[in-house]
Computed example of a mutant assay.
Amino acid sequence: MLPAVAVCVALAGCSTASSDAAPPAAPASSSAGSAGSAGPSGSTGSAGTASEPSSGSPRGERTGQAHPAGVSIPSIGVNSTVMRLGLQADGTVEVPPAEQGMTVGWYTGGAVPGEPGAAVLIGHNDTRFGRAVFHDLKKIREGADVVVRDTAGKNIHFTVTGTETVDKKAFPTDKVYGATEGSTLRLITCDGDFDAAGHPVDNLIVYADPR
């Protein structure tokens, strides 16, 4: 079972800041941050309050196992390679650098897409360089197809089951990162108005299940 990740998807840097994320071994309250403890941003925002030192291989992977290499969402024009996101030295989740705003990131501490558990893909809405890969994620609708291509060349199709906009200070950690009976996918970006520091105050979460 995957541990709950205390993250607050504060994809804060969706414009100029970068997001932080901190997945703890047990549920913990989260503060503002970046993508549910894992979030894309231009520089750095604030994130979960708990941290979990990482050792060895990411819990979501097995040696030699195929992992996500690309993701496409035809209905909103997304077609991106996938970069790996782990934990930073302070226990927060990495986010794609602003200069790679058109690239989606996969949090390796979660599940591998298509395997049991919650797989989490994080993308910027905007960065200081302009609109980013998940800029139009807010336009996605229930029933939309999300295709994850793995390093073995296999396409794994997911169907969007719903979306949710949440305040970064009340990120639903258990719902997004907690254990699941089967394979699920979450897409996360920043959303909403900006606070005084110029960080988006909300996160947009898209939920999808295997087709």
Rank of each mutant, 00 (worst) to 15 (best):
V148G: 04
A170R: 08
D193Q: 10
V176E: 09
F194G: 03
F158A: 09
I156D: 04
D191W: 08
F171E: 11
G162A: 00
S183I: 04
V166E: 11
C190P: 07
D193G: 13
V148M: 14
T180D: 11
G143W: 00
D174N: 13
L187V: 02
K169S: 14
D193L: 04
R149H: 12
K139P: 03
Y177F: 15
G192S: 05
G162S: 00
E142N: 00
F158N: 04
T161R: 06
V146S: 01
A170H: 09
T151Q: 08
T184F: 07
F194S: 08
V146L: 03
V148A: 06
D167M: 07
P172K: 09
G178M: 14
V147K: 07
R186T: 05
V176P: 07
V166P: 05
H157I: 06
A170N: 12
G178C: 13
F194M: 10
R186M: 12
V160E: 01
D150G: 07
A170W: 03
Y177E: 15
T189Q: 08
H157W: 05
L187K: 00
G178W: 14
V176L: 11
H157E: 10
G153W: 06
R149T: 15
V147Y: 03
D167C: 08
I156M: 06
V176M: 10
R149F: 02
T184C: 09
H157P: 04
T184R: 15
F158S: 03
A179D: 15
K168N: 15
K139S: 04
I140Q: 04
L187E: 03
T184I: 06
T165K: 10
V176T: 10
R141H: 01
K154S: 13
L185A: 08
L187T: 03
A152N: 07
P172R: 13
R141D: 01
F158E: 02
P172F: 14
R149V: 08
T184E: 14
L185Y: 09
E181T: 11
D167L: 07
T151Y: 06
H157A: 09
D174L: 12
V176S: 10
S183H: 13
H157G: 06
E164A: 09
G162V: 03
I156K: 08
Y177M: 15
V166G: 04
T189V: 08
E164S: 10
V160N: 01
D193V: 05
S183G: 10
E142A: 00
K154L: 08
G182L: 04
D174A: 15
I140N: 03
L187Y: 05
V160M: 05
N155L: 12
V147I: 12
K154T: 14
R186D: 06
T163R: 07
R149L: 08
E181D: 15
K138P: 02
K154V: 10
T165F: 01
N155W: 02
